[in-house]
């Protein structure tokens, strides 16, 4: 094979593989951008128990307008801890924002390690502490505006 044909074919290969790489890249982005896996599963957000850790099946609770936390069985999130009150705290959606309220519990509710004394706005990633339990809040901001 002569050298000119070789160079031509190699340049062709370089150009085509470069364009091919870019097209494949954008194809991946397009497909994953359209069907965002996290979005439909999470709804408006969810609460994850971080401590004490459960092996793989993390305790996950999707947020709804009112989420109650406490030792009593009727709570959205049941806390199996003697430090927790029966109705300990709740998370409510008001005016497009999530608030954390302590329901006059005996031992108090911590937000990021500090005990709260009044209703406090929650933000994505906040850590809610009740007794020895720690919950991490995940908010889905895309869906919040609606």
């Amino acid at each position: 094979m002569n050298i000119e044909l070789t160079i031509f074919l190699l340049r062709l290969l370089a150009g085509l593989s470069l364009v091919g790489f870019l097209l494949a890249l954008f194809a991946v982005i397009w497909r994953q951008g359209v069907q965002h896996p996290a979005a439909d599963r999470a709804g408006q957000g969810f609460l994850v128990r971080e401590q004490p850790t459960l092996a793989e099946d993390e305790l996950r609770c999707s947020l709804r307008p009112i989420v109650t936390l406490g030792r009593a069985a009727g709570n959205t999130v049941v806390i199996n801890d003697d430090f927790a009150s029966a109705s300990h705290a709740r998370i409510v959606l008001e005016g497009g924002r999530w608030w954390l309220e302590d329901r006059e519990s005996r031992n108090g509710t911590q937000l990021n390690g500090e005990t709260i004394h009044r209703r406090t706005i929650l933000a994505d990633g906040d850590e809610i502490g009740i007794g020895k339990y720690r919950y991490r809040l995940h908010l889905n901001q895309e869906n919040m505006a609606s």
Binding site: L10, L13, G20, F21, A24, V28
Partner: peptide, 24 residues
């Protein structure tokens, strides 16, 4: 299912591109 198949295609194309460069 995060499209793991895509990585092989992308690496294949990248490999072809780098091969062409080295050969040139």
């Amino acid at each position: 299912s995060r499209g793991q198949g895509n990585v092989w295609l992308l690496l294949l194309l990248a490999g072809a591109f780098i091969f062409a460069g080295m050969a040139l």
